[in-house]
Design a protein around this nucleic acid. Structure first.
Lengths: 141, 141
DNA sequence: CATATTTGTAACCATTATAGTTACGAATAT
DNA sequence: ATATTCGTAACTATAATGGTTACAAATATG
């Protein structure tokens, strides 16, 4: 299976914020992402806990970045969401079988290297990079 | 979200086959993995199509490898399963928004680098490596 | 102060993927 | 001929996801 859309939605939202001087409302972000404002609030809550964004209720409220876009690495964004590891273990291999009894430890190591490789790749980009690339594409039209 | 258990189950099964001289039945494999034989048949079918294993019905039938364990890289195993990319796109970003209209292309590129990093990591190990590590752990008890 | 705006959050629903299970047909060894 | 084993369709339970409604709480502004 694949991951949820949360990561994509989140990068999208952060890119919008990086491109805006004023705070943006969940409603506005949802309009660009094409989803419901509640989905945005739900998803962004994780980033708020991580200190990447802040939100303010009430008139003229909304979301804004708490850090320069160039300092927000996609790895940290991804990890804020608290997703499971992308490769997952099977549940209860038979521990009385010589293979079954020892495979988990080996797989944990294999999966965790793979996860690190994925995260390292994400750590090489920031929201500022994404925004720049988006603008470049927009110009190319 | 995370992946299905299929990959873990599959590596487990291939490791069992690598460790055995005779063909193994789905029933036996299921016993070590702790699942149903049908789940094994279902999952292994993908590997058979890829030419990694063969199966024979009837008495004394079962599964066996078609290639030396040292020649079976985890990357190929993973890809045989035909899983989606681990990071997935959101559905219909608003194309009339300058960000929404261009974010998909950028994300595709970001996600595909990450996917490659993951696959590269998996390509560095074979079923023979896994079997060796399992045996090493078994000895350590 | 009254009002409109906006977030926070719980609750519910529909959809989808996954894995477990049953059932039965077909192939094969002995 | 029989027991064994795979192949596959079908059904079920469970869980995750995302969309939606509803309403309380916070805030800016006239």
């Amino acid at each position: 299976m694949n991951t949820s859309q949360r990561f994509a939605i989140t990068i999208h939202a952060l890119t919008l914020l990086a491109d805006s001087r004023q705070p943006l409302t969940s409603e506005y972000i949802a309009g660009s992402v094409d989803t419901h404002a509640v989905v945005i609030r739900r998803t962004m809550a994780a980033l708020r806990e991580q200190g990447l964004v802040e939100s303010k209720p009430g008139a003229r409220g909304g979301w804004k970045l708490k850090r320069a876009p160039g300092k927000i690495h996609l790895r940290e964004v991804y990890q804020s969401l608290g997703e499971e590891e992308v490769l997952s273990m099977h549940s209860h291999p038979n521990r009385y079988c010589p293979i079954g009894g020892n495979i988990r430890g080996v797989l944990e190591e294999v999966f965790s290297s793979a996860q690190s490789a994925l995260l390292d790749s994400l750590s090489r980009r920031t929201i500022a990079d994404v925004l720049r690339d988006v603008h470049a594409r927009a110009r190319r039209r």
